[in-house]
Amino acid sequence: MAFTDRCDIFGSVHEEGINRIVRHVMQQRPSLFNYATAFFLQRPELLCERIKVAPEVLRARDPLFSVEDPIPVLGSPVPLGLNWCLQFTDLQIDFHPGNVFDLPQELGKLPAQRLALYMRGCFGLDCLPERFIRELLPRVEAEAVAQRGKETFGIAAFPQGDKLAEPIVFPTQKLLCFCVKLFAVLHFEWGTIPGSPQMWLKVRLDGLELVDLGPAPLEEMVECYIKMVLQLGILPRLSVPIEAMVLNITELMRKQGLSIGETITLQPTPVPAGVPNNPAVEDDQLKAFVNLVVEV
């Protein structure tokens, strides 16, 4: 069977190709996947997970992570900050049939025309040793007494003046880390969007599961939040109008100085008249079917 039996142009990408690209991006642009306080610039070995990078990143002295502000110690009259890190250590995709990674029992077997996502993330937070706390306590107590009677909101005192005080950040000796694995099952579907007459290609979430997070209510709460972030925050932004998928060849040629008296476009092969699914998620690939349309 030919690739183009049911269309004019066929394109496909295999899950292994995408996963290799993701690995290259993670190793060449680690700052997109790792976030930590400036302290770790000198001590990257203290991060939760060792960051695997391409040799050229080290040669170019590119940052291994994006530098973020310390997490404040709430309520402290002295501005105190704690070192932390957030690392996305693995990201993979699996097109039906599922064979790149095993889905947790809660999600079952990957259904037809579905794709699965796997992500592993680690969060680490510094925990000050008791001797640091003892060392700090006299200064904190003195400041607490000095600030008595000033206006406060809850447990946090707002800093006075325009300039935010630099927090005191103690050097980290060892982060407390935990890692979680997130699995999601998704599919593509065509549909309308209120206010737009054309069809849109949307990404829909079928299920999501966090593994190794407890207790159960905490897992449920975090899962629910991540679902909302995906369904209401990220996935709607990924919707693509069919108009954006139509490649206007006439216009492209006109820009190259070649004028054509006909309108030539590349358009997605219609579903289900042309093909049963477009894009199709099958045979470990994402497949797209395209037709050449010529209008005089």
Binding site: A2, T4, D8, I9
Partner: peptide
Amino acid sequence: MAHFTLAVSERTFQRSFDLLKRNLT
């Protein structure tokens, strides 16, 4: 199986050839 595949049908070549003939001067 290749990681990326692109296929163009003979029919598309023929139509593009006809378009080229009709429009190229």
